[in-house]
Nucleic acid binder design. Structure first.
Lengths: 211, 211
DNA sequence: AGCAATTCTTGACAGTTGTCCAAGAAACTC
DNA sequence: GAGTTTCTTGGACAACTGTCAAGAATTGCT
């Protein structure tokens, strides 16, 4: 076999692999939507297939089993959701701008991506019971922590203060606020959300001392 | 029918009701254990029955359906878990004692009741998808918030400072730390837990300014 | 002891689940 | 365009689910 033939075969193989991967992510996205709609407990393969343009049998062609599929969906979530505040950080020239931009983005994504967020918390929680998701969940949580830390450290920089906590503490505290806001949103407690929106800047200022 | 007969009948009726209620809570406790073991997604009625001393059929004698049973289990959780720090608050005479007692209790219950805690977060999350649990979840969350606020406000009192946040913010921030600690614990990340234990006093001091 | 009300067990039911497979459809190669 | 590989379908499967009901076992009362 010549070199040309080899590269050709490689190209074909690569194209097939790419196609395979493309379909995998396509199905992973459908899985993500189903999970966001129904939650982990009530997400079945047939339901996922109905949220895609294929029949349920195809899932076992592209994924070893349900766990594999959901793991892939979790990774798909990661691709979407760990750079949410980066633009805000990049565009802010003053501490005030950054704080305002952060709070606005915080509540904007809360409102517009609520199902996706509840899905994340659902899967993170599931990892407390099922070891199989844990590695991916921990990695995503790390990246979310880093995302928040980029905000906090930049805010400290702009405001001439210093972060008062570790990156982890800053993340989990703000994430706690987000979880509560999500619960309030889905429960229709609008006044509570307004309160949280008022207080979030204060929390940010707590995390960055002397701001 | 005489008055005597009536009171007697009442007594009997009351005893039956008490017995009925006693069995209901007994089964609710078994449900709680099952949920703590398996998580909401994998908890079935037969599994619950196996964690009790009865067969699966009895569950529909005492509960209308699965939702009713789990709702009752949630309420059972409440009875156990919303006064955890009250003793610490009552026994502390100085700010330092209170802070130390709080941190110790925080990580003690984390370690000894980890399954119960993950169950709570699981059910709270489930309420983001199923409206039926939401009322109870919100009520329990309120009581947990009050529990934390008793610690924070007392700590402010003893240390001569003032709470720097609302009760809600204080709760969700500390609860965020707890959730992370739980994830670390179940993942065997011992160093991370040690870090959190070191930082928790600082977080408490953040929440109570000028302490 | 005998009767009545209760509590509990067991098995059945219809529906759903994850998984697998045979066969057809489609895409691609030569 | 024939032949091969890849992809997709739809159905079958065994296991499991919540629910219910008939009858056995137990309890409590007189």
């Amino acid at each position: 076999m010549t070199e040309v033939a080899e590269t050709k075969r490689d190209r074909i193989a690569r194209r097939q692999v790419d196609k395979f991967e493309a379909r995998r992510t396509e199905l992973a996205v459908a899985t993500l939507h189903t999970l966001a709609d129904l939650g982990y407990a009530r997400t079945s393969l047939r339901e996922i297939a109905q949220n895609s343009e294929f029949s349920h049998g195809v899932l076992h062609y592209y994924f070893a089993d349900k766990r594999d599929l959901i793991t892939q969906a979790v990774r798909q979530y990661e691709a979407v959701c760990v750079t949410r505040y980066d633009e805000v950080v990049a565009n802010a020239n003053t501490a005030d701008q950054l704080r305002r931009g952060f709070v606005d983005m915080f509540f904007a994504t809360l409102a517009s991506d609520a199902p996706l967020h509840r899905l994340w918390y659902d899967l993170r929680n599931q990892s407390l019971f099922e070891e199989s998701f844990r590695t991916d969940v921990l990695e995503i949580d790390e990246r979310r922590e880093a995302m928040i830390w980029r905000v906090v450290s930049r805010y400290a920089e702009l405001s001439g203060g210093e972060p008062a906590t570790s990156p982890t503490a800053a993340y989990v505290m703000l994430d706690g606020v987000f979880q509560r806001a999500l619960l309030c949103l889905l429960s229709g407690m609008d006044e509570e959300i307004a309160k949280l929106k008022n207080e979030l800047p204060c929390v940010l200022d707590l995390v960055v001392a002397g701001a």
